[in-house]
Design a protein around this nucleic acid. Structure first.
Lengths: 224, 224
DNA sequence: AGGATGCTTCGATGATGGACGAACTATGCG
DNA sequence: CGCATAGTTCGTCCATCATCGAAGCATCCT
Protein backbone atom coordinates (compact mmCIF):
# COMPACT_ATOMS: atom_id res chain seq x y z
CA UNK A 1 0.00 0.00 0.00
CA UNK A 2 1.26 3.41 -0.85
CA UNK A 3 -0.06 6.92 -0.63
CA UNK A 4 0.99 10.36 -1.75
CA UNK A 5 -0.57 12.55 -4.39
CA UNK A 6 -3.92 11.02 -5.21
CA UNK A 7 -3.30 10.28 -8.83
CA UNK A 8 -6.26 7.93 -9.16
CA UNK A 9 -8.63 10.70 -8.15
CA UNK A 10 -7.35 13.02 -10.84
CA UNK A 11 -7.13 10.33 -13.50
CA UNK A 12 -10.64 9.07 -12.81
CA UNK A 13 -11.93 12.59 -13.28
CA UNK A 14 -10.48 12.53 -16.78
CA UNK A 15 -11.52 8.92 -17.18
CA UNK A 16 -15.17 9.56 -17.83
CA UNK A 17 -15.98 10.07 -21.52
CA UNK A 18 -18.22 13.05 -20.92
CA UNK A 19 -15.65 14.79 -18.76
CA UNK A 20 -12.85 13.89 -21.14
CA UNK A 21 -14.77 15.50 -23.98
CA UNK A 22 -15.28 18.62 -21.94
CA UNK A 23 -11.61 18.87 -21.05
CA UNK A 24 -10.60 18.28 -24.65
CA UNK A 25 -12.98 21.00 -25.74
CA UNK A 26 -11.43 23.35 -23.20
CA UNK A 27 -7.99 22.64 -24.63
CA UNK A 28 -9.09 25.08 -27.30
CA UNK A 29 -8.30 27.66 -24.64
CA UNK A 30 -11.53 29.59 -24.71
CA UNK A 31 -13.69 29.25 -21.64
CA UNK A 32 -17.09 27.73 -22.38
CA UNK A 33 -20.47 27.80 -20.71
CA UNK A 34 -22.15 24.81 -19.12
CA UNK A 35 -24.60 24.48 -22.01
CA UNK A 36 -21.86 24.54 -24.62
CA UNK A 37 -19.94 21.91 -22.72
CA UNK A 38 -23.04 19.77 -22.39
CA UNK A 39 -23.48 19.89 -26.14
CA UNK A 40 -19.80 19.19 -26.67
CA UNK A 41 -19.91 16.17 -24.40
CA UNK A 42 -23.21 14.91 -25.73
CA UNK A 43 -25.02 14.83 -22.39
CA UNK A 44 -27.96 16.64 -20.88
CA UNK A 45 -27.52 19.85 -18.98
CA UNK A 46 -28.04 18.37 -15.50
CA UNK A 47 -25.50 15.67 -16.24
CA UNK A 48 -23.00 18.21 -17.50
CA UNK A 49 -23.54 20.34 -14.46
CA UNK A 50 -22.81 17.41 -12.21
CA UNK A 51 -19.62 16.66 -14.11
CA UNK A 52 -18.54 20.26 -13.95
CA UNK A 53 -18.92 20.45 -10.21
CA UNK A 54 -16.81 17.32 -9.89
CA UNK A 55 -14.10 18.78 -12.08
CA UNK A 56 -14.23 21.95 -10.02
CA UNK A 57 -13.93 20.04 -6.79
CA UNK A 58 -10.98 18.20 -8.25
CA UNK A 59 -9.30 21.52 -9.00
CA UNK A 60 -9.09 20.92 -12.72
CA UNK A 61 -11.35 23.79 -13.70
CA UNK A 62 -11.88 27.42 -12.86
CA UNK A 63 -15.11 29.27 -13.34
CA UNK A 64 -15.93 32.89 -14.01
CA UNK A 65 -19.48 34.03 -13.47
CA UNK A 66 -20.66 36.73 -15.80
CA UNK A 67 -24.28 37.54 -15.40
CA UNK A 68 -26.27 34.42 -15.82
CA UNK A 69 -23.45 32.73 -17.70
CA UNK A 70 -20.77 30.68 -16.04
CA UNK A 71 -17.63 30.31 -18.06
CA UNK A 72 -15.59 27.23 -17.32
CA UNK A 73 -11.93 26.99 -18.23
CA UNK A 74 -8.93 24.77 -17.48
CA UNK A 75 -7.40 25.57 -14.11
CA UNK A 76 -3.95 26.22 -15.55
CA UNK A 77 -1.13 25.25 -17.89
CA UNK A 78 -0.19 22.30 -15.73
CA UNK A 79 -3.61 20.78 -16.23
CA UNK A 80 -3.38 21.48 -19.96
CA UNK A 81 0.02 19.76 -20.00
CA UNK A 82 -1.46 16.72 -18.31
CA UNK A 83 -4.24 16.47 -20.86
CA UNK A 84 -1.70 16.72 -23.67
CA UNK A 85 0.37 13.95 -22.09
CA UNK A 86 -2.64 11.67 -21.81
CA UNK A 87 -3.69 12.52 -25.36
CA UNK A 88 -0.19 11.63 -26.53
CA UNK A 89 -0.34 8.19 -24.96
CA UNK A 90 -3.85 7.61 -26.23
CA UNK A 91 -2.79 8.56 -29.75
CA UNK A 92 0.31 6.37 -29.61
CA UNK A 93 -1.49 3.41 -28.15
CA UNK A 94 -4.77 3.61 -30.00
CA UNK A 95 -4.85 1.32 -33.01
CA UNK A 96 -8.07 3.06 -33.95
CA UNK A 97 -6.22 5.71 -35.90
CA UNK A 98 -6.85 4.17 -39.30
CA UNK A 99 -7.02 7.13 -41.62
CA UNK A 100 -5.32 10.35 -40.56
CA UNK A 101 -8.08 12.39 -42.16
CA UNK A 102 -7.89 15.97 -43.34
CA UNK A 103 -8.80 17.46 -39.98
CA UNK A 104 -5.97 15.62 -38.32
CA UNK A 105 -3.56 16.80 -40.99
CA UNK A 106 -4.59 20.37 -40.31
CA UNK A 107 -4.18 19.72 -36.59
CA UNK A 108 -0.62 18.57 -37.10
CA UNK A 109 0.24 21.71 -39.02
CA UNK A 110 -1.22 24.21 -36.58
CA UNK A 111 -3.63 24.04 -33.71
CA UNK A 112 -4.51 25.80 -30.51
CA UNK A 113 -3.07 24.32 -27.34
CA UNK A 114 -4.87 25.86 -24.40
CA UNK A 115 -3.98 29.47 -25.22
CA UNK A 116 -1.07 29.33 -27.62
CA UNK A 117 -0.16 27.88 -31.00
CA UNK A 118 0.96 24.26 -31.35
CA UNK A 119 1.86 22.01 -34.28
CA UNK A 120 4.57 22.07 -36.91
CA UNK A 121 4.27 25.79 -37.47
CA UNK A 122 4.66 26.50 -33.78
CA UNK A 123 7.65 24.20 -33.41
CA UNK A 124 9.32 25.82 -36.42
CA UNK A 125 8.66 29.24 -34.97
CA UNK A 126 10.32 28.42 -31.66
CA UNK A 127 13.29 26.88 -33.45
CA UNK A 128 13.76 30.00 -35.47
CA UNK A 129 13.39 32.39 -32.52
CA UNK A 130 16.01 30.42 -30.63
CA UNK A 131 18.34 30.28 -33.63
CA UNK A 132 18.12 34.05 -33.98
CA UNK A 133 18.73 34.36 -30.24
CA UNK A 134 15.59 36.36 -29.76
CA UNK A 135 14.85 33.68 -27.22
CA UNK A 136 17.39 31.66 -25.30
CA UNK A 137 16.80 28.20 -24.02
CA UNK A 138 19.05 27.13 -21.27
CA UNK A 139 17.59 24.07 -19.86
CA UNK A 140 13.97 23.53 -20.59
CA UNK A 141 13.55 27.08 -19.39
CA UNK A 142 13.17 29.59 -22.15
CA UNK A 143 14.33 33.15 -21.49
CA UNK A 144 14.08 36.37 -23.41
CA UNK A 145 17.23 37.32 -25.32
CA UNK A 146 18.64 40.86 -25.22
CA UNK A 147 16.88 41.82 -28.43
CA UNK A 148 13.57 40.26 -27.47
CA UNK A 149 11.78 43.32 -26.13
CA UNK A 150 12.52 45.50 -29.14
CA UNK A 151 11.97 42.61 -31.52
CA UNK A 152 8.48 41.90 -30.31
CA UNK A 153 7.65 45.56 -29.77
CA UNK A 154 8.29 46.07 -33.50
CA UNK A 155 5.59 43.51 -34.22
CA UNK A 156 3.29 45.08 -31.70
CA UNK A 157 3.65 42.60 -28.89
CA UNK A 158 4.42 43.71 -25.38
CA UNK A 159 6.49 41.12 -23.56
CA UNK A 160 6.39 42.76 -20.15
CA UNK A 161 4.92 40.33 -17.70
CA UNK A 162 2.61 41.51 -14.99
CA UNK A 163 1.02 38.16 -14.36
CA UNK A 164 2.59 35.55 -12.14
CA UNK A 165 2.61 33.27 -15.12
CA UNK A 166 5.95 32.93 -16.93
CA UNK A 167 6.47 34.85 -20.15
CA UNK A 168 8.07 31.90 -21.90
CA UNK A 169 7.45 28.25 -21.33
CA UNK A 170 8.20 25.15 -23.35
CA UNK A 171 5.22 22.94 -24.05
CA UNK A 172 5.67 19.50 -25.53
CA UNK A 173 3.95 19.04 -28.85
CA UNK A 174 2.32 15.62 -28.99
CA UNK A 175 2.25 15.42 -32.78
CA UNK A 176 5.78 16.64 -33.50
CA UNK A 177 7.24 15.42 -30.21
CA UNK A 178 9.27 18.56 -29.79
CA UNK A 179 8.38 21.65 -27.87
CA UNK A 180 6.72 24.87 -28.87
CA UNK A 181 6.34 28.20 -27.14
CA UNK A 182 3.79 28.62 -24.36
CA UNK A 183 3.51 31.23 -21.60
CA UNK A 184 2.17 34.75 -21.94
CA UNK A 185 4.35 35.36 -24.98
CA UNK A 186 3.01 32.26 -26.68
CA UNK A 187 -0.50 33.43 -25.92
CA UNK A 188 0.23 36.94 -27.21
CA UNK A 189 1.58 35.57 -30.48
CA UNK A 190 -1.53 33.49 -31.02
CA UNK A 191 -3.65 36.56 -30.30
CA UNK A 192 -1.65 38.48 -32.86
CA UNK A 193 -2.10 35.78 -35.50
CA UNK A 194 -5.84 35.67 -35.05
CA UNK A 195 -6.19 39.43 -34.71
CA UNK A 196 -4.32 40.05 -37.96
CA UNK A 197 -6.48 37.36 -39.53
CA UNK A 198 -3.41 35.51 -40.74
CA UNK A 199 -5.28 32.40 -39.71
CA UNK A 200 -8.67 31.44 -38.43
CA UNK A 201 -9.80 28.75 -36.06
CA UNK A 202 -11.56 25.81 -37.59
CA UNK A 203 -15.10 25.57 -36.29
CA UNK A 204 -15.56 22.97 -33.54
CA UNK A 205 -11.92 21.99 -33.65
CA UNK A 206 -8.60 23.04 -32.25
CA UNK A 207 -7.20 23.28 -35.76
CA UNK A 208 -5.88 26.63 -36.97
CA UNK A 209 -5.87 27.26 -40.72
CA UNK A 210 -3.62 29.86 -42.26
CA UNK A 211 -4.73 31.81 -45.31
CA UNK A 212 -2.17 31.91 -48.16
CA UNK A 213 -1.36 35.55 -47.44
CA UNK A 214 -1.48 34.99 -43.71
CA UNK A 215 1.01 32.19 -44.02
CA UNK A 216 3.38 34.46 -45.92
CA UNK A 217 3.01 37.17 -43.30
CA UNK A 218 3.58 34.73 -40.47
CA UNK A 219 6.68 33.31 -42.11
CA UNK A 220 8.04 36.76 -42.85
CA UNK A 221 7.64 37.84 -39.25
CA UNK A 222 8.50 34.68 -37.36
CA UNK A 223 10.41 32.36 -39.67
CA UNK A 224 12.62 34.88 -41.50
CA UNK B 1 -19.62 15.29 -29.76
CA UNK B 2 -16.00 14.82 -30.59
CA UNK B 3 -13.71 11.91 -31.15
CA UNK B 4 -10.02 11.32 -31.68
CA UNK B 5 -7.50 9.66 -29.41
CA UNK B 6 -9.52 7.94 -26.72
CA UNK B 7 -8.23 9.84 -23.76
CA UNK B 8 -11.01 8.72 -21.43
CA UNK B 9 -10.05 5.10 -21.95
CA UNK B 10 -6.45 5.73 -20.96
CA UNK B 11 -7.32 8.00 -18.08
CA UNK B 12 -9.87 5.60 -16.65
CA UNK B 13 -7.22 2.90 -16.66
CA UNK B 14 -5.13 5.10 -14.41
CA UNK B 15 -8.25 6.21 -12.56
CA UNK B 16 -8.69 3.08 -10.50
CA UNK B 17 -6.85 3.21 -7.16
CA UNK B 18 -5.47 -0.29 -7.46
CA UNK B 19 -4.15 0.31 -10.96
CA UNK B 20 -2.81 3.71 -10.01
CA UNK B 21 -0.85 2.15 -7.19
CA UNK B 22 0.56 -0.44 -9.55
CA UNK B 23 1.62 2.18 -12.07
CA UNK B 24 3.16 4.32 -9.35
CA UNK B 25 5.07 1.31 -8.10
CA UNK B 26 6.34 0.65 -11.61
CA UNK B 27 7.62 4.23 -11.83
CA UNK B 28 10.46 2.85 -9.76
CA UNK B 29 11.62 1.42 -13.08
CA UNK B 30 12.10 -2.17 -12.04
CA UNK B 31 9.64 -4.63 -13.50
CA UNK B 32 7.56 -6.42 -10.90
CA UNK B 33 5.67 -9.69 -10.74
CA UNK B 34 1.91 -9.96 -10.46
CA UNK B 35 2.14 -10.98 -6.80
CA UNK B 36 4.35 -8.05 -5.90
CA UNK B 37 1.99 -5.69 -7.65
CA UNK B 38 -1.00 -7.23 -5.89
CA UNK B 39 0.70 -6.59 -2.57
CA UNK B 40 1.65 -3.09 -3.63
CA UNK B 41 -1.90 -2.27 -4.64
CA UNK B 42 -3.46 -3.96 -1.66
CA UNK B 43 -5.71 -6.32 -3.59
CA UNK B 44 -5.96 -10.05 -4.02
CA UNK B 45 -4.07 -11.88 -6.71
CA UNK B 46 -7.05 -12.52 -8.98
CA UNK B 47 -8.05 -8.88 -8.78
CA UNK B 48 -4.51 -7.78 -9.57
CA UNK B 49 -4.38 -10.16 -12.49
CA UNK B 50 -7.58 -8.70 -13.88
CA UNK B 51 -6.19 -5.18 -13.55
CA UNK B 52 -2.95 -6.16 -15.20
CA UNK B 53 -4.67 -7.62 -18.21
CA UNK B 54 -6.64 -4.42 -18.58
CA UNK B 55 -3.49 -2.34 -18.42
CA UNK B 56 -1.91 -4.66 -20.97
CA UNK B 57 -4.86 -4.34 -23.28
CA UNK B 58 -4.66 -0.59 -22.92
CA UNK B 59 -1.04 -0.70 -24.00
CA UNK B 60 0.29 0.82 -20.80
CA UNK B 61 2.30 -2.20 -19.73
CA UNK B 62 4.69 -4.72 -21.20
CA UNK B 63 5.31 -8.14 -19.82
CA UNK B 64 8.32 -10.43 -19.89
CA UNK B 65 7.78 -14.05 -19.01
CA UNK B 66 10.64 -15.75 -17.23
CA UNK B 67 9.85 -19.22 -16.12
CA UNK B 68 6.78 -19.12 -13.98
CA UNK B 69 7.25 -15.44 -13.24
CA UNK B 70 5.77 -12.70 -15.34
CA UNK B 71 7.50 -9.38 -14.97
CA UNK B 72 5.33 -6.38 -15.68
CA UNK B 73 6.82 -3.00 -16.57
CA UNK B 74 5.69 0.33 -17.98
CA UNK B 75 5.30 0.23 -21.74
CA UNK B 76 7.68 3.12 -22.33
CA UNK B 77 8.96 6.56 -21.43
CA UNK B 78 5.86 8.21 -22.86
CA UNK B 79 3.70 6.35 -20.39
CA UNK B 80 6.08 7.24 -17.59
CA UNK B 81 5.85 10.88 -18.65
CA UNK B 82 2.09 10.76 -18.52
CA UNK B 83 2.12 9.33 -15.01
CA UNK B 84 4.52 12.08 -13.93
CA UNK B 85 2.23 14.71 -15.44
CA UNK B 86 -0.80 13.34 -13.60
CA UNK B 87 1.21 13.07 -10.40
CA UNK B 88 2.22 16.69 -10.79
CA UNK B 89 -1.37 17.87 -11.06
CA UNK B 90 -2.46 15.67 -8.19
CA UNK B 91 0.32 17.06 -6.00
CA UNK B 92 -0.47 20.65 -6.95
CA UNK B 93 -4.20 20.27 -6.51
CA UNK B 94 -4.30 18.04 -3.46
CA UNK B 95 -4.93 20.05 -0.30
CA UNK B 96 -3.93 16.93 1.58
CA UNK B 97 -0.28 17.86 1.42
CA UNK B 98 -0.12 19.14 4.96
CA UNK B 99 3.38 18.27 6.05
CA UNK B 100 5.98 17.66 3.37
CA UNK B 101 7.54 14.92 5.46
CA UNK B 102 11.09 13.61 5.28
CA UNK B 103 10.37 11.11 2.54
CA UNK B 104 9.00 13.83 0.32
CA UNK B 105 12.03 15.99 0.97
CA UNK B 106 14.27 13.12 -0.07
CA UNK B 107 12.11 12.61 -3.14
CA UNK B 108 12.61 16.21 -4.17
CA UNK B 109 16.38 15.89 -3.89
CA UNK B 110 16.76 12.68 -5.85
CA UNK B 111 14.47 9.93 -6.96
CA UNK B 112 14.09 7.31 -9.64
CA UNK B 113 11.88 8.23 -12.57
CA UNK B 114 11.16 5.08 -14.53
CA UNK B 115 14.79 4.19 -15.25
CA UNK B 116 16.76 7.36 -14.69
CA UNK B 117 17.49 9.89 -11.97
CA UNK B 118 15.09 12.75 -11.25
CA UNK B 119 14.93 15.55 -8.68
CA UNK B 120 17.14 18.52 -7.89
CA UNK B 121 20.34 16.56 -8.28
CA UNK B 122 19.31 15.33 -11.72
CA UNK B 123 18.28 18.78 -12.90
CA UNK B 124 21.56 20.24 -11.68
CA UNK B 125 23.45 17.50 -13.49
CA UNK B 126 21.79 18.19 -16.81
CA UNK B 127 22.37 21.92 -16.40
CA UNK B 128 26.04 21.33 -15.82
CA UNK B 129 26.46 18.89 -18.70
CA UNK B 130 24.86 21.39 -21.04
CA UNK B 131 26.93 24.27 -19.68
CA UNK B 132 30.09 22.26 -20.32
CA UNK B 133 28.79 21.42 -23.77
CA UNK B 134 29.13 17.72 -23.15
CA UNK B 135 25.49 17.71 -24.16
CA UNK B 136 23.82 20.18 -26.46
CA UNK B 137 20.18 21.06 -26.29
CA UNK B 138 18.79 22.59 -29.36
CA UNK B 139 15.11 22.61 -28.95
CA UNK B 140 13.79 20.17 -26.45
CA UNK B 141 15.97 17.63 -28.19
CA UNK B 142 19.20 16.88 -26.40
CA UNK B 143 22.19 15.77 -28.47
CA UNK B 144 25.65 14.52 -27.63
CA UNK B 145 28.36 17.14 -27.89
CA UNK B 146 31.69 16.42 -29.62
CA UNK B 147 33.39 15.53 -26.37
CA UNK B 148 30.55 13.39 -25.08
CA UNK B 149 31.81 9.97 -26.12
CA UNK B 150 35.25 10.39 -24.59
CA UNK B 151 33.86 12.19 -21.57
CA UNK B 152 31.51 9.38 -20.65
CA UNK B 153 33.98 6.67 -21.65
CA UNK B 154 36.36 8.09 -19.04
CA UNK B 155 33.69 7.47 -16.41
CA UNK B 156 33.01 4.04 -17.76
CA UNK B 157 29.80 4.75 -19.58
CA UNK B 158 29.30 3.66 -23.16
CA UNK B 159 27.03 6.07 -24.98
CA UNK B 160 26.73 4.06 -28.17
CA UNK B 161 23.11 3.33 -28.78
CA UNK B 162 22.02 0.01 -30.17
CA UNK B 163 18.44 0.28 -29.01
CA UNK B 164 15.81 2.17 -30.92
CA UNK B 165 15.36 4.32 -27.88
CA UNK B 166 17.05 7.74 -27.98
CA UNK B 167 20.31 8.18 -26.11
CA UNK B 168 19.28 11.53 -24.67
CA UNK B 169 15.82 12.73 -23.84
CA UNK B 170 14.49 15.53 -21.72
CA UNK B 171 12.00 14.52 -19.05
CA UNK B 172 10.05 17.12 -17.12
CA UNK B 173 10.67 17.03 -13.41
CA UNK B 174 7.42 17.53 -11.53
CA UNK B 175 9.01 18.78 -8.34
CA UNK B 176 11.52 21.20 -9.85
CA UNK B 177 9.45 21.96 -12.96
CA UNK B 178 12.51 21.81 -15.17
CA UNK B 179 13.83 18.90 -17.12
CA UNK B 180 16.36 16.25 -16.34
CA UNK B 181 18.12 13.69 -18.48
CA UNK B 182 16.30 10.57 -19.61
CA UNK B 183 17.03 8.14 -22.44
CA UNK B 184 19.63 5.37 -22.47
CA UNK B 185 22.28 7.75 -21.20
CA UNK B 186 20.09 8.82 -18.28
CA UNK B 187 19.51 5.17 -17.49
CA UNK B 188 23.21 4.36 -17.73
CA UNK B 189 24.09 7.17 -15.35
CA UNK B 190 21.60 5.92 -12.78
CA UNK B 191 23.05 2.44 -13.16
CA UNK B 192 26.51 3.86 -12.56
CA UNK B 193 25.40 5.73 -9.44
CA UNK B 194 23.84 2.64 -7.91
CA UNK B 195 26.64 0.33 -9.03
CA UNK B 196 29.30 2.53 -7.47
CA UNK B 197 27.11 2.67 -4.36
CA UNK B 198 27.20 6.46 -4.38
CA UNK B 199 23.57 6.24 -3.45
CA UNK B 200 21.02 3.60 -2.56
CA UNK B 201 17.35 3.30 -3.23
CA UNK B 202 15.09 3.88 -0.28
CA UNK B 203 13.10 0.76 0.48
CA UNK B 204 9.52 0.87 -0.88
CA UNK B 205 9.99 4.31 -2.31
CA UNK B 206 11.32 6.00 -5.39
CA UNK B 207 13.64 8.12 -3.27
CA UNK B 208 17.37 7.85 -3.86
CA UNK B 209 19.64 8.70 -0.95
CA UNK B 210 23.26 9.67 -1.50
CA UNK B 211 25.90 8.77 1.04
CA UNK B 212 28.20 11.64 2.07
CA UNK B 213 31.09 10.21 0.09
CA UNK B 214 28.84 9.22 -2.77
CA UNK B 215 27.53 12.75 -3.01
CA UNK B 216 31.10 14.07 -3.23
CA UNK B 217 31.94 11.57 -5.94
CA UNK B 218 28.78 12.37 -7.90
CA UNK B 219 29.47 16.09 -7.71
CA UNK B 220 33.08 15.63 -8.71
CA UNK B 221 32.14 13.63 -11.77
CA UNK B 222 28.93 15.34 -12.90
CA UNK B 223 28.80 18.78 -11.34
CA UNK B 224 32.45 19.81 -11.63
C1' DA C 1 -43.86 42.61 -11.74
C1' DG C 2 -43.77 38.79 -15.06
C1' DG C 3 -41.70 35.90 -18.13
C1' DA C 4 -37.67 33.86 -20.29
C1' DT C 5 -33.10 31.91 -20.10
C1' DG C 6 -28.98 29.67 -17.87
C1' DC C 7 -27.74 26.68 -14.52
C1' DT C 8 -27.99 23.72 -10.34
C1' DT C 9 -30.13 20.42 -7.10
C1' DC C 10 -32.97 16.41 -6.14
C1' DG C 11 -34.54 11.78 -6.66
C1' DA C 12 -35.02 7.50 -9.02
C1' DT C 13 -33.12 4.23 -12.24
C1' DG C 14 -29.89 1.45 -14.34
C1' DA C 15 -25.43 -0.23 -15.90
C1' DT C 16 -20.74 -0.61 -15.51
C1' DG C 17 -17.06 -2.65 -13.32
C1' DG C 18 -14.38 -3.83 -9.09
C1' DA C 19 -14.10 -7.22 -5.48
C1' DC C 20 -13.01 -12.03 -4.00
C1' DG C 21 -13.32 -17.42 -3.58
C1' DA C 22 -12.92 -21.43 -6.09
C1' DA C 23 -11.48 -23.88 -9.75
C1' DC C 24 -8.17 -24.29 -13.58
C1' DT C 25 -3.49 -23.98 -16.14
C1' DA C 26 1.43 -23.67 -16.25
C1' DT C 27 6.04 -23.98 -14.64
C1' DG C 28 9.58 -25.69 -11.50
C1' DC C 29 11.51 -29.05 -8.23
C1' DG C 30 12.70 -33.34 -6.19
C1' DC D 1 5.46 -38.36 -11.65
C1' DG D 2 3.36 -35.81 -7.84
C1' DC D 3 3.48 -31.71 -5.08
C1' DA D 4 4.23 -26.72 -4.54
C1' DT D 5 4.15 -22.16 -6.32
C1' DA D 6 2.78 -18.41 -9.80
C1' DG D 7 -0.87 -16.80 -12.50
C1' DT D 8 -5.27 -16.69 -14.96
C1' DT D 9 -10.25 -17.54 -15.62
C1' DC D 10 -14.93 -17.93 -13.99
C1' DG D 11 -19.07 -16.78 -11.46
C1' DT D 12 -21.26 -14.04 -8.33
C1' DC D 13 -22.05 -10.24 -5.38
C1' DC D 14 -22.11 -5.55 -4.45
C1' DA D 15 -21.19 -0.52 -4.68
C1' DT D 16 -20.40 3.28 -7.20
C1' DC D 17 -21.67 6.55 -10.36
C1' DA D 18 -23.50 8.25 -14.77
C1' DT D 19 -27.87 9.45 -16.56
C1' DC D 20 -32.09 12.12 -17.07
C1' DG D 21 -36.82 14.44 -15.81
C1' DA D 22 -38.72 17.59 -12.84
C1' DA D 23 -38.40 21.11 -9.80
C1' DG D 24 -35.81 24.98 -7.75
C1' DC D 25 -32.66 29.38 -7.95
C1' DA D 26 -30.60 33.15 -10.06
C1' DT D 27 -30.17 36.60 -13.48
C1' DC D 28 -31.58 39.37 -17.31
C1' DC D 29 -35.07 41.79 -20.28
C1' DT D 30 -39.12 44.63 -20.93
Amino acid sequence: MREGPDIARIASLVGDPARANMLTALMGGTALTASELALEAGVSLPTASSHLSKLMEGGLLTVASQGRHRYYGLAGPQVAGMIEAITGVAAAVGPQRVRPGPRDAAMRVARVCYDHLAGEQAVAMLDRLVARQVLIRDDKEIRLGPSAVSHFAAIGIDVESKARRPVCRACLDWSVRRSHLAGTLGAAILDKILLEKWARREKDSRAVVFSPLGKQAFERVFLA
